[in-house]
């Protein structure tokens, strides 16, 4: 079974591939996985095989990478992957309370997905928003100075759209 990407993703993958010198295409492994995962929602075995083929490495060498990086998931996350930072700066500003609230409200835990597949939660390490803590990241979108009310609004808005 071969994998086809949307034209947009395919264009990105080709562009990524072109950035690295001849014989160094292995460099494209991680970016390709990241952008392809954005489209597929998960890293599948087919994706691993496809990236291995394009970057001229063995599937095992791609699997090694997938296992290492925390943003590459072999388990499908929700349409909205909601990440709550509880690292020091956020912890000091109430990040932990946000995390507990989110898990309670959605009834799911770390790297778990709601039954409808809409939202997944992850307790993440410092997201680089310390001076505007606490922060929550929805996919790639940052939310700063988050309060429980703001978190509820965010979840509401996700649920309303779908």
């Amino acid at each position: 079974m071969s994998l086809t990407f949307t034209p947009e993703t395919e264009k990105i993958l080709q562009d990524i591939w072109s950035r690295y010198p001849e014989g160094r295409k292995r460099s494209a492994v991680i970016p390709m996985l990241m952008y392809a995962q954005d489209q597929l929602g998960v890293v599948t075995s087919e994706l691993v095989a496809e990236v291995a083929k394009r970057c001229e490495v063995s599937p095992l060498q791609v699997e090694e990478v997938v296992g290492y990086y925390s943003m590459l998931n072999k388990k499908r996350m929700g349409k909205h992957h909601v990440q709550v930072c509880t690292n020091i700066a956020c912890l000091l500003m109430g990040g932990e309370a946000l995390w507990h609230h989110a898990t309670k409200r959605l009834g799911i835990g770390h790297k778990e997905v709601t039954a409808d597949g809409l939202i997944s939660l992850e307790e993440v390490e410092c997201a680089g928003a310390c001076s505007w803590a606490p922060c929550v990241v929805d996919g790639y979108e940052y939310h700063h100075h988050v309060t429980i009310e703001k978190l509820d609004q965010l979840i509401d808005s996700i649920q309303k759209v779908h």
Binding site: S58, P59, L60, Q61, E63, E64, G67
Partner: peptide
């Protein structure tokens, strides 16, 4: 051959075989 690699990280690191 290269049939063995390392997967996961930190204390969860493990040796992994080449075919899943």
């Amino acid at each position: 051959v290269g049939a063995l690699g390392v997967t996961n990280r930190g204390v969860l690191s493990e040796i992994a075989p080449n075919k899943e």
